[in-house]
């Protein structure tokens, strides 16, 4: 196998890996953030006067649980630039 071919295979594998990484990495944060939003909805419907506290806590929790998706994004971008 010549050099160009192996470079092309490496590039293709890196791009494929980036796609797979992003696809699977987005599942967790999606489920988690949806769960947090649903629970916040329940809390707000139960105690509407606590809306601002619940909303703020939900946002912070979602931003923290989003970080696994962000890690996969970083790795995908690193793979993309191989």
């Amino acid at each position: 196998m010549d050099h160009g071919m192996s470079q092309a295979i490496i590039k293709a594998a890196a791009l494929l890996g980036a796609g797979i990484c992003m696809g699977f990495g987005a599942i967790g944060p999606g489920v988690g953030e949806g769960f947090a939003a649903g629970k916040a909805c329940e809390g707000i419907s139960r105690r509407p006067e606590e809306y601002s506290t619940l909303f703020r806590t939900m946002l912070i929790g979602q931003a923290v649980s989003e970080s696994t998706g962000i890690y996969s994004l970083v790795i995908a971008l690193l793979l993309y630039s191989v």
Binding site: A63, V64, E66, S67, I70, Y71, L73, V74, L77
Partner: peptide, 16 residues
């Protein structure tokens, strides 16, 4: 690592 990459990834990903 987690605190720095969270900020970096969000801003960088948003810009992209």
């Amino acid at each position: 690592v987690s605190i720095s990459f969270r900020l970096f990834g969000n801003i960088f990903g948003g810009a992209v």
